[in-house]
Amino acid sequence: MRNASLVLGLVLATALTLGAFIAPPPAALAVQPDEVLADPMLESRARALSKHLRCLVCQNQSIDDSDAGLARDLRVLVRERLKAGDSDEEVLAFLVARYGDFVLLKPPVKPTTWLLWFGPFAIFAVAGLGIWAASRRKRPATAPAAPLSAAEQEKLDALLAQDEHPPSRPPSDPPQRPAS
């Protein structure tokens, strides 16, 4: 018994470890021909909705990608509700009422997910402002040096292109000592 679970564990561990990309099992059997709706508009809405709904019994798949029985039931249910005239929002609300927010692959925006939704843009804004502030602080008090003349620019380009020379060091840079 212990051995069996060890072996099973190892097989699964393998799937996980190696599986940078194999976490989802082969999903070729996901949407079945008999599920497909005749109305292409409804069908494409159903497909789009399915991609937003998590298969609850699977690892990390949408019901559109999964061949699990429950995923199939949910796909059929989504199509039935669409045929009955539900809007996309109503279909999602129907499932959220039964399975909670967990069923949505796109979490709703609410206080507990503010950090998730606005975090990336907040990081971008704060870091951007920080860089902007730092660059202003570092700007020399005197007027910036006049742009290089064309001849100077060419010379510099040549130097940089050649790049045999190590980069120049600003004169203000003091000698550095190793810490030890």
């Binding site: 937003h52 998590r54 069923v103 949505l104 692959l105």
Partner: peptide, 17 residues
Amino acid sequence: GKVSVGVPYFTLTFVPL
């Protein structure tokens, strides 16, 4: 609570960046 973060999230946040 429990939430799922899937493809639609990354499409809406990572891609615009």
